[in-house]
Design a protein around this nucleic acid. Structure first.
Lengths: 128, 128
DNA sequence: TGGTATGTTTGACGTGGATCGTACTACAAT
DNA sequence: ATTGTAGTACGATCCACGTCAAACATACCA
């Protein structure tokens, strides 16, 4: 009993946030890549399967932002957390938005390109 | 003659930027309000007529961001700068995006509501 | 019971960017 | 010319946020 509800993060379901919040959530290149990834595969994606060059803590942070914007749902399955895009809800709130994002050709800034993940932590072009 | 081309800012026309840049440009609440404003009136808007609670220098900054994202065009007319949304180009690049933004109900965060700004500089709108 | 795998949380850090005020430029009207 | 108006440029400040490492939590397996 540490005051933490273990399910709180699992099922945060609320309405999709307002357009400003949604845009802000999607404006980050990492999160945009995540959303596009989620939108392309209609199967849930487990946290470690996102191909983004950030550490797992940063990834978790981004998932939180998306979750709090009402864009994704997560459920635990064993030790995994499966993430799905709330496509229907988003489409209802902002028709065509996800479609636009998925269709748009995306050129990652080179600072964001994926490289080999050596063992456990993701690798960016290291700043030094 | 400081090396500045006085027309450079007037006609920077290039292609609409990539989706990440566009989203980032629109994600700011002030700029979102500006874009919505531009999208609603199909007449050009002069700089001082935006109903946003920032000083003119900040406003100029936001216009630059939008311009560099390829979202707006500006032309000088006398002492004014008339700004238009590049609707056709944006629609061609990201169909439905502007439509979505305009349609979305927007609740401004209270921090963004119009109010008196200290001193001379608040961008205020002529009542008609 | 311990060990491993998967995520979350927390704290710290650095940077980008939103903001302002001031100074400057360009045009118009007096 | 002088004044006023409209906007840009620049420098400074401040804070939000993206990032990481480390510690913690939870589930599964040996």
């Amino acid at each position: 009993m540490n005051g933490h509800d273990p399910l709180a993060a699992t099922d945060p379901i609320g309405p999709v946030a307002d357009i400003a919040t949604v845009l802000q959530a999607m404006a980050d290149p990492v999160r945009l890549a995540m959303v596009r990834s989620l939108a392309s595969n209609d199967e849930p994606i487990c946290c470690g399967s996102f191909q983004v060059p950030v550490t797992k803590s940063t990834l978790s942070h981004h998932l939180r932002v998306l979750r709090e914007a009402g864009l994704i749902e997560q459920r635990s399955e064993g030790t995994r957390r499966l993430t799905t895009l709330r496509r229907a809800e988003i489409d209802a709130a902002f028709p065509g938005l996800v479609e636009t994002l998925v269709r748009a050709p995306l050129q990652l800034p080179e600072s964001l390109e994926m490289q080999e993940l050596p063992g456990e932590s993701a690798v960016v072009v290291s700043p030094h």
